[in-house]
Nucleic acid binder design. Structure first.
Length: 387
DNA sequence: AAGTCGGGGAG
DNA sequence: CTCCCAGACTT
């Protein structure tokens, strides 16, 4: 075995195969944070749970750059949890206006009152207690506990999900329940060890995961690609090893798009086929396409469509027979189009006196611009196939 | 499990 | 334009 490593390494996790976390994972992040992490954010270098809590709430689904000014204004006007609890709702909302997700501000106010009324004005340090407060979920509770008291409890935010997805090679949308459950399990295993330096380590580690995700393991261009030394986890990173940083984490699945269907007529006279020029506006504007018939029966009735196709073709000549020649699906950004092609062979054709209609030889497809699926369909006709 | 909340930045 | 951001809460 050419590759050797002191720490156990994970392999790719295409399914639920258990992943082993390198035993020094946590401490590597700790050391990296102390050397290369962020140390001058307004809510750092303090153990004031009020400021830490406030920053964590403001930072929920909100980037650091957007929060800084709001944070300064807020603590200047309401410097303590007691002051916040005593403030009016209007005053709180005014300080929050523009940050978005205003339920955060309402919960913030409620939480301040709860801390005053139920916890003697002192923030709990137990994550299990913190999560019972309004606006504080599992990850935020762990962050507050770690930063304010060095409690050993894992966070799992967008940064951590991205880092974990790449380092451990986890496929699947992290917003999905099963994926998130696996990541929480990994987050617990990845923590730096308990011990005498645990409190300081947890502060650096928690900050370090966020810093890694925000500055090195960035969404677009991870810094490890040009420079593996930029990331303390690069040596164990599955995504980096396998060239998957661009596809991990798996993006949110796109919303199901509606499906439409149409019937296209392939009217054939020898090797000629009848095309129609589409209006400039709308789908395939200005391109030459095949004539279409609306689909008015669900489920699709093949014989009825073939009969209708024969009737339709009568305007252009003497149709002999019509047959369903094939189906194909074309995907647009906003809908999926099921195309059924009915071939109609004509024994004789009448003169076409219409600028938007013309016959084209299958041997001359390059002469006109046609939509991609129509082009494929015509090329198949040219080969004499039925798709 | 899916929907909702929001403004801003990056690609 | 879409996707994402130190997510939590409701249905």
């Amino acid at each position: 075995m050419p590759r050797k490593s002191a720490a156990p390494l994970s392999s790719v996790s295409t399914d639920s195969a258990p992943i082993s976390v390198p035993t020094d994972f946590g401490m590597r992040v700790v050391r990296w944070q102390r050397q290369h992490g962020r140390h001058d954010l307004p809510w750092q270098n303090t153990r004031d749970a009020y400021r830490i809590w406030l920053s964590e709430i403001m930072l929920q689904q909100t980037q650091v750059a957007a929060v800084i000014e709001y944070f300064h204004r807020f603590v200047a006007q309401l410097p303590t949890v007691a002051a916040l609890a005593a403030a009016s709702a209007d005053e709180v909302m005014a300080l929050w206006a523009g940050l978005g997700y205003y339920s955060r501000a309402r919960n913030l106010h409620r939480c301040a009152k709860a801390v005053m009324d139920e916890h003697g004005g002192v923030f709990p340090t137990d994550p299990d207690v913190l999560v019972t407060l309004p606006g504080i979920g599992r990850s935020t509770a762990a962050a507050i506990a770690a930063f304010s008291a060095g409690v050993r409890s894992p966070i799992l935010d967008g940064n951590v999900k991205r880092v974990f997805a790449r380092v451990f090679g986890i496929e699947g949308y992290p917003g999905e329940r099963a994926i998130e459950t696996r990541m929480w399990r990994l987050a617990e295993q990845a923590l730096p060890p308990a011990g005498p330096t645990q409190a300081e380590d947890m502060i650096s580690y928690t900050q370090g995961l966020m810093d890694l995700g925000a500055t090195v393991c960035a969404r677009g261009k991870p810094a490890c690609l040009p420079d593996a030394a930029a990331c303390p986890l690069a040596a164990d990173c599955v995504a980096r090893r396998d060239g998957l940083t661009a596809v991990l984490p798996t993006p949110k699945p796109r919303a199901a798009i509606p499906e439409r269907s149409t019937v296209m007529l392939v009217m054939r006279h020898g090797r000629d086929v009848l095309l129609g020029l589409r209006p400039d506006s709308g789908i395939w504007g200005g391109l030459w396409s095949l004539p279409e018939m609306p689909v008015d029966t669900v489920p699709f009735d093949i014989e009825a469509a073939e009969d209708a196709a024969l009737e339709e073709a009568r305007a252009f000549g003497t149709p002999a027979r019509a047959t369903l020649a094939g189906e194909l699906t074309h995907v647009f950004t906003h809908f999926r189009l099921l195309i059924r092609a009915i071939r109609v062979d004509l024994d004789a054709v009448t003169h076409v006196d219409d600028a938007a209609r013309r016959w084209l030889s299958l041997d001359d497809l390059d002469a006109l611009g046609t939509p991609a699926p129509v082009r494929r369909l015509l090329e198949d006709q040219a080969r004499g196939g039925l798709f």
